[in-house]
Simulated scan of single mutants.
Amino acid sequence: MCLLLIAYRQHPQFPFIVLANRDEFYARATQVAGPWHDQPITAGRDLEAGGTWLGVAPNGRVAAVTNMREPQMPEPADVLSRGEIPVNFLTGEQTPSAFAQGIEGPRYRGFNTLLFDAHLLSDDHNPALVCAGNRHQPFAITAGVHGISNGAPDSPWPKVIHGCTALSKLTAGLPNRLDENSFVTPALDLLADTRRAPVDELPDTGVGEALESALSSIFVRILDGDAPPGTPLSTGYGTRVSSLVAVDRDGGIQFWEQGYENGQRSGAPRHFRLNPPAG
């Protein structure tokens, strides 16, 4: 997952909305979103490492993870897959804050993870939404529109700034019932933006100007010739999945996933509805 756009407590009916793009190698084996047969969650699945980039659970939980772009950092000894972090939270019972404190950060390559529990929306003592990572301390996300890409949370990368601005406008006009015209289509259009940032606005994460440019759009599409020859991304890399999550004030969750093949939309969005958690 390479971009998370979050509208938190910005709509009276939907206090938590997430729009997300997962960027990955085109050849990496992936299972489309759906209920897992071995875990009580609904998510896509990375078939290479077994985890997920974003998922939801009937207990009112939502979790997602992005990697940090830090090519010079060595891999940890006995490294764990970052995709297991959302799975472990979704299938557990700890609050977001408690779970965040227990993550073994040194065992993972750099990451940010978003942890949400609808049970805590009315709790004044335990935050319902927490961002954790192994390059910063966990913190409660405040009401507002936020963006997380492959740097620090809310880093002013062009895709984060443009995405947050667009999500603010979209959220302001949402009705109390979401449908294809009011939410799904405009949200997926927002996530399909292929405009690259001007060179003078690019971040410097150590991958070189050509790749910084190729990765600067909200929707990433890198084919033969778009990346320096011999680099890993030159074999085909980009947005594989766009995901939309909307949690209503009762804790009910709606989840849409749109898949892509080699940068082209594949089929219609899949839609899942999870009822509010009891209690």
Rank of each mutant, 00 (worst) to 15 (best):
141 I>F: 05
172 A>R: 11
189 D>Y: 04
117 D>C: 01
67 N>C: 10
90 L>M: 06
147 G>K: 05
167 L>E: 03
192 A>Y: 08
119 H>C: 03
44 G>R: 11
266 S>E: 14
59 N>F: 03
175 P>F: 10
251 G>Q: 02
142 T>F: 02
132 A>N: 09
245 V>T: 04
118 A>E: 10
206 G>L: 08
249 R>Y: 07
179 D>F: 05
241 V>Y: 06
159 K>I: 03
279 G>M: 12
82 R>Q: 01
139 F>I: 10
38 D>K: 06
10 Q>P: 13
109 R>M: 13
11 H>A: 10
199 V>K: 14
89 F>I: 06
252 G>I: 00
141 I>W: 11
279 G>Q: 12
198 P>M: 08
114 L>K: 02
30 T>E: 02
262 N>V: 03
89 F>Q: 08
38 D>I: 01
5 L>T: 12
112 N>L: 00
136 H>P: 13
190 L>P: 09
141 I>V: 15
81 S>Q: 06
96 P>F: 06
240 R>L: 04
54 L>R: 03
236 G>A: 08
75 E>I: 04
177 R>M: 07
100 A>N: 03
275 N>M: 11
67 N>E: 02
237 Y>N: 13
19 L>A: 15
183 F>L: 14
102 G>A: 12
245 V>K: 04
248 D>I: 04
92 G>H: 03
187 A>F: 05
227 A>Q: 05
68 M>F: 15
77 A>K: 09
23 D>G: 11
154 D>V: 09
67 N>Y: 13
87 V>S: 03
144 G>F: 05
120 L>T: 09
8 Y>H: 15
39 Q>H: 07
120 L>P: 07
267 G>F: 10
219 F>T: 01
179 D>E: 13
21 N>M: 06
112 N>A: 11
180 E>T: 15
21 N>T: 11
157 W>K: 08
4 L>N: 01
69 R>K: 04
49 A>R: 15
237 Y>D: 07
241 V>G: 01
140 A>H: 09
43 A>K: 06
228 P>C: 12
202 L>N: 06
212 E>I: 12
84 E>N: 06
175 P>H: 12
60 G>D: 07
101 Q>T: 11
215 L>D: 01
220 V>E: 10
230 G>T: 12
274 L>S: 05
83 G>L: 08
231 T>A: 09
185 T>W: 00
189 D>F: 03
138 P>V: 00
32 V>M: 07
111 F>C: 03
181 N>R: 12
216 S>Q: 07
12 P>N: 07
50 G>Q: 07
143 A>T: 01
177 R>S: 09
224 D>H: 12
187 A>I: 10
78 D>W: 03
126 N>W: 01
258 Q>P: 12
273 R>H: 13
276 P>R: 15
5 L>F: 12
204 D>G: 04
97 S>K: 05
